[in-house]
Design a protein around this nucleic acid. Structure first.
Lengths: 231, 231
DNA sequence: AACTGTGAACGGGTTCACAGCC
DNA sequence: GGCTGTGAACCCGTTCACAGTT
């Protein structure tokens, strides 16, 4: 069985073909589907069924999974539990990734309480806000800290991933402070492009942009919309 | 000046080259940057400066904008205000798009109060929840309605875009009801793949998936992470 | 017979280089 | 000289067809 990963003489695992970004972005979806199947005591799944549940086509599933290794059985399909383990390992979910949240406003508070994070193994490990009044306030089982204490607090807690839920105007400075505090991955909810060193991973979630994209396609379908603006 | 759009004899605008999806997804970002420039009384911008602010490279900006028409001036750049208008029109933002929100829980409530939507011209026009107890409850200046009233309410209000912020288990049924109520575009925050007719536009915002993608790249950098899980 | 794994063909999107215009 | 507009080259990702395996 040939594998797209192998070991060097020193024993370190070295990936021969890197996993394409597009594939990485789909692995979490496959994982969720597989866990759901496992909950229903389903032990084996074909690329066809997995594709259907993940909203993609079967060849794509096979290609994606082939980047991880030859984990399927021809004529049979994939072992659900084994795949769950392999994908989890690949995504680095076999270890704990505490995340920090900066900006405990409207959206930040919702994110702090979002069940989906804990369900998927992401624990909020620190909350920060720029408002001194709010420092010390309890949210869930965490106390809000002032952003001036961010650097020492994050280093102490060994936090490498952070969410930015500040107003847009504060996001860039927040990002810089996070990077100074050793954070290497940022999920940005503020509607601004962040400029960070190239070694830092940033992903952007822009709620208004999503709606604007939908509006574009909606407009094309030329159905009757709401009233004209300003009337 | 050749244009990628033209008029038929009947006067309807017909696009010769369709705008690539990838470009559509960037137009809202350009628009935001341009509006920001306009606020600072900047009247002209080069592709280089626009690219920098939007986090892309100059040729991409020029290619993207060229799909809309030849709106720049060689040797000078783009007129900020004119571009704002053209992009807004292209995205369909010169009209009002009231949106519905289904699922007024933790996340839903935050979305209902999200300032960014109103700032970008999206007004929440209806709130629905499956919990009968909550029907009638006031959130902001809207009253929560029960989902059983969705169809008549949405049709009456002429709402075509909806946000799903229900638990994952309820999302598919919610989507089906929305489609039955005439909704054509859905922004789904529930962590499930929705199956809808191909004429319906769905965009997915999956918060946990974003974190999992970051975890993947974080793991590669081989820094020391938090403690192992379960210890 | 059923289903995976994958090289090869294909297509959309990005980048490049330069022609075109102010 | 400066900057846009765009065909052409390039690259990544998707799809396809089928060889390989149980």
């Amino acid at each position: 069985m040939r594998r797209p990963s192998d070991r060097t003489r020193s024993g370190a695992r070295v990936r021969v073909k890197p996993i394409p970004e597009a594939t990485v972005a789909r692995l979490p979806v496959y994982l969720r589907v597989l866990q759901h199947l496992a909950d229903q005591q389903i032990t084996t799944v074909s690329s066809e069924r997995l594709a259907e549940a993940a909203g993609v086509n079967p060849p794509k599933v096979r290609k994606d999974l082939s980047y991880l290794g030859s984990y399927g059985t021809r004529g049979v399909g994939y072992d659900v539990e084994y795949l769950v383990y392999q994908i989890s390992r690949e995504l680095g979910l076999t270890q704990d990734w505490p995340v920090a949240l900066v900006g405990v406003g409207n959206l930040g508070q919702a994110l702090a309480g979002y069940k989906g994070f804990t369900q998927r193994g992401f624990r909020i490990g620190a909350l920060f806000d720029a408002d001194r009044e709010r420092a010390g306030e309890q949210v869930g089982n965490l106390r809000i800290e002032h952003i001036d204490d961010m650097e020492s607090s994050l280093k102490e807690k060994g936090i490498a991933i952070a969410l930015i839920a500040t107003p847009a105007a504060a996001a860039q400075e927040t990002a810089e402070r996070l990077v100074a505090a050793g954070v290497r991955s940022i999920l940005n909810f503020a509607p601004t492009v962040l400029t960070v060193p190239s070694s830092i991973h940033v992903r952007q979630v822009d709620l208004s942009v999503e709606l604007q994209i939908l509006a574009f396609y909606e407009q094309r379908t030329a159905g009757r919309p709401g009233r004209r603006r300003g009337t």
